[in-house]
Amino acid sequence: MTLSRDTGLGVLAIVLAGAYYAEAGNIQQSLLADAVGADGVPRMLAAGMALTGLALAGRGFVRPAAGKGDDLPASAHLRAAGLLAILVVYLLAVPVAGYPLSVAALIAAVAVYAGARANAALAITSVAGAAAFWFMFKWLLGIQLPVGMLSWG
């Protein structure tokens, strides 16, 4: 790694501040606004973030060792990304497949991904878990959950 962690974070903060500042410029000007304006505080925040980023980046150059964090191998990030992918698939599946089916699949998929063996016990646990959530939210709390296209109740 050529950049120190601090420098990287600093640059990231400056980029974020820039994007946020630019978007603040798109806020509608209103005659109901005060002297500070709807974009006033966002601009201050952007400036604060940029200055902090600058200081961090500077510190990273001067003392590259100071900002050492935990270095995980790329494979670790990939594993995290995999879990995130499962969650995103769930998010997309709920409106189509409905809640009960999706959440049972979510439990099974995450458990297997986290190292559980894909066996009958897991299948039973997933279905029982989905049923328990359904019972808690639908029947105890009275909250409507989508059943999806495969509507059976």
């Binding site: 969650l87 769930y90 998010l91 709920v94 809640y99 959440v103 979510l106 439990i107 099974a108 998929a109 995450v110 458990a111 297997v112 991904y113 986290a114 190292g115 559980a116 646990t125 997933s126 878990g129 989905a130 959530f133 939210f137 709390l141 909250i143 959950l145």
Partner: peptide, 19 residues
């Protein structure tokens, strides 16, 4: 066991937040 725990925590979060 940890895999089950992770699965149920995420399912709980997904349900509660969505509901």
């Amino acid at each position: 066991p940890k895999p089950y725990l992770i699965a149920f925590i995420l399912a709980l979060v997904c349900t509660g937040v969505f509901a």
